[in-house]
């Protein structure tokens, strides 16, 4: 369903993601956890292209959504003069990794075969961000409801505008979803009259109104008062049972453990551990995960 290959993300000189490779199956529920600044949110936001990867490719439902990354194609690197010059000094995989890491390929020093291969790869089609985002919903830490629209208008705007469905159908869909999250009685009010928990439930419903295949949750309960966390987690839990693919960045360890199929532990921009929740929480393999769990549990 989602395939992340060799994903790097730099913000200027800050290297936030340093080579993430991750596969997510249809219907899987994955929690990404880790210390703050580890790159969790950046990784999540890369999946719907709110962040543009520096290197690497992301595939969703078998389609490339990022520009093709020539470094991910060993045949290109092998065709380069740089590779030929250095070959024999290291084994093949290590050499390719080194060329990529040190960004040793510079087109002007390379030959015709390399260039034509590169051109072919760079010319490959990838899906536009708009198409990608239709299929991937996102729930934000700060809800981001549109404050000048009522709950109903928040819910029907994108389905009408982006999916092109009629107003009646969109409103019907909105009512159904608001019922699901227990917010139907607030359909006519403006977001400013809602509590944080209510806003987040509406935001989840708004995301679902686009009927996405995948929903990304970016710390959905971190901005909530403690007494409102449960109502939102309950909604997410109910959603998890519907078989939709979900990727969560969360600080709610108990929740992550209960609801996830897999835990991805991120630290300093790399995936340190990727395990089922029972294994991860009871017997974390790495020192970093152990240290992290000691602090948060």
């Amino acid at each position: 369903m989602i395939d992340i290959k060799g994903l790097y993300k730099d913000f200027g000189s800050l290297h936030v993601l340093k080579g993430i490779t991750l596969h997510i199956d249809q219907g899987e529920i994955i929690s990404i956890i880790g210390p703050s600044g580890s790159g969790k949110s950046t990784l999540l936001r890369s999946i719907n292209l709110l962040e543009e990867p520096t290197f690497g490719e992301i595939w969703v439902e078998g389609r490339l959504i990022t520009p093709p990354d020539p470094y991910l194609h060993p045949e290109v690197i092998r065709a380069s003069n740089t590779y030929k010059r250095l070959s024999g000094t290291q084994d093949d995989a290590a050499l390719i990794a080194r060329i990529k890491k040190e960004d040793l390929l510079h087109e002007k020093h390379e030959g015709a075969r390399y260039r034509s291969l590169l051109k072919e790869i760079k010319g490959r089609n990838f899906e536009s961000a708009y198409e990608v985002r239709k299929k991937i919903g996102m729930v934000f830490q700060h809800f981001n409801l549109f404050p000048h629209m009522t709950v109903l208008d928040n819910m029907i705007y994108a389905p009408m505008k982006v999916l092109g469905i009629g107003k009646e159908e969109a409103a019907e869909r909105a009512r159904k979803l608001l019922t699901q999250v227990g917010m139907l009685d607030k359909i006519g009010v403006y977001p400013s009259t809602l509590s944080g928990g209510q806003k987040q439930r509406v935001a989840i419903a708004r995301t679902l109104a686009m009927e996405p295949d995948i929903v990304l949750f970016d710390e959905p309960t971190s901005a909530l008062d403690p007494e409102m966390v449960k109502e939102v987690l309950d909604v997410i839990k109910a959603l998890a049972k519907t078989g939709i693919t979900m990727v969560l960045v969360t600080h709610e360890m108990g929740f992550a453990r209960e609801v996830s199929d897999r835990i991805v532990f991120l630290d300093e921009g790399v995936i340190v551990e990727d395990a089922d929740p029972a294994t991860f929480f009871s017997t974390p393999k790495s020192d970093r995960a152990q240290a992290f769990l000691e602090k948060v549990l």
């Binding site: 709110l50 700060h142 981001n144 705007y157």
Partner: peptide, 30 residues
């Protein structure tokens, strides 16, 4: 206007002209 408004609009697949016209400018004018 909060970046989150742009991000929410983008995440919903809303194109730039609609986003400006219906989401950003109404709030800015206010």
């Amino acid at each position: 206007i909060d970046r989150g408004q742009y991000e929410a609009a983008m995440a919903l697949g809303i194109h730039y002209p609609s986003m400006m016209k219906d989401i950003i400018l109404p709030q800015a004018i206010k």
